[in-house]
Design a protein around this nucleic acid. Structure first.
Length: 356
DNA sequence: AAATCCGACAACCGCATCGGA
DNA sequence: TTCCGATGCGGTTGTCGGATT
């Protein structure tokens, strides 16, 4: 309570200061960026309010901090999220939920803002189209059973002639940022040439400074491609549909059914998917069972997740189970997953269902 | 060619927490 | 112990450019 009062007082005073100083808002100009960078070069990071007052910037300390952390900091990595990074985000989010900064710590060079945006624009979109909650167990299962294998396959495809998949997927390497963060620091709009080219390299199109537009601001490429290239369209997710007997946005864990036509469109049509289009699977057969069977049919998932046949368990259970919480015990095991996947990648990864 | 829609992302806002006085 | 400023975090909004109609 007292903390609350204190916070309010702080807010009030900062509002007052803002009014006094006529603080700037909105997109940063090149000039402002230079001021901020110069100040930090001289004085280091931190003490943002002091920085805001002394640097000549008519910005709040908060705004300065955000600009630095999310955009100007030299080790910020820009460009497409690699499949490895996407995989890691999916996995870590299943463990920790919306703990963006915590997740970001495991993706060197990526900011919490970037990860959050990725989640909201890509992952949540898929969940919306499935009409399930992105945090629901069933969605997480679907991610595990479909999206992740796709990413792994993508990783294999892109790294096959460059990197040993086993090495690439080794958790220690992921933790160290391999596949996502090996690029050296970049600065001042110069981007790592080895990473996926940032659309409109240099400052992004959003950084076309209102005051001094950079001529390097490209009109080519652009936002839409950020990770669309890394993650091919996911028709499967987009086109999956629930038999809507449990209501929209319900957590259908263990209670839903896949439209097999949609599944077919996922590229899983090479598998034995059971009932025909539109069929609702028998009550005794849950979605997850169904997915399991599909995975088993594909061969890879079950092996990949370190499980054997578990006819009546969900993918989640296979991968370590889920209990509705984000706690580590219920999460899938990245290390095992990656290692198993790597083993798979070294061999018959085409078993994943082909046609993707 | 113009209008509209949509996706992506930078930036802002409110709240919580931390640490020092 | 309390107060207060600084910082961090997560949710939301605004803006821009490309795609589509």
């Amino acid at each position: 309570m007292s903390q609350r009062k204190g916070a309010m007082a702080a807010v009030t005073s900062s509002k007052h200061e803002e009014e006094m100083m006529e603080l700037r808002r909105g997109p940063w100009t090149l000039e402002e960026d230079n001021l901020l960078m110069n100040y930090i070069v001289c004085h280091g990071e931190g003490r943002w309010n002091l920085l805001a007052r002394c640097s000549g910037l008519k910005r709040t300390g908060k705004s300065c901090r955000l600009r630095w952390l999310n955009y100007l900091k030299p080790d910020i990595k820009r460009g497409n999220l690699t499949p490895e990074e996407q995989l890691l985000i999916l996995e870590l989010h299943s463990k920790w939920g919306n703990r963006w900064s915590r997740i970001a710590q495991h993706l060197p060079g990526r900011t919490d803002n970037e990860i959050k945006n990725y989640w909201r624009t890509r992952v949540q979109k898929q969940a919306r189209q499935l009409r399930v909650d992105a945090n629901s167990a069933v969605f997480r299962d679907a991610v595990r059973c479909y999206w992740m294998p796709r990413l792994l396959e993508k990783m294999a495809a892109t790294s096959a002639h460059q990197v040993d998949p086993a090495a690439l997927l080794h958790p220690a390497h992921i933790a160290a940022g391999v596949g996502g963060s090996a690029s050296p620091p970049v600065h001042g709009g110069q981007h790592d040439a080895t990473s996926a080219p940032s659309p409109g390299s240099g400052y992004s199109h959003h950084q076309s400074y209102p005051v001094d537009p950079s001529p390097s601001t490209s009109t080519s490429g652009c936002s839409g491609s950020t990770s669309a290239a890394a993650l091919p369209p996911v028709p499967c997710f987009s086109e999956l549909s629930w038999v809507d007997q449990y209501g929209p946005y319900a957590d259908l864990d263990g209670a839903g059914a896949f439209d097999s036509a949609a599944l077919g469109s996922l590229g899983l049509d090479g598998l034995d998917l059971g009932p025909a289009d539109g069929d609702v699977y028998p009550d005794s057969t849950t979605l997850l069972d169904y997915l399991n069977s599909a995975c088993t049919g594909g061969g890879a998932m079950m092996t990949m997740m370190g499980g054997g046949n578990a006819p009546h368990s969900s993918c989640g259970a296979i991968m370590g189970g889920h209990d509705g919480d984000y706690g580590p015990p219920s999460s899938w095991r990245t290390d095992e997953l990656c290692q198993a996947a790597a083993r798979k990648l070294g061999g018959d990864h085409h078993q994943w269902g082909g046609g993707i």
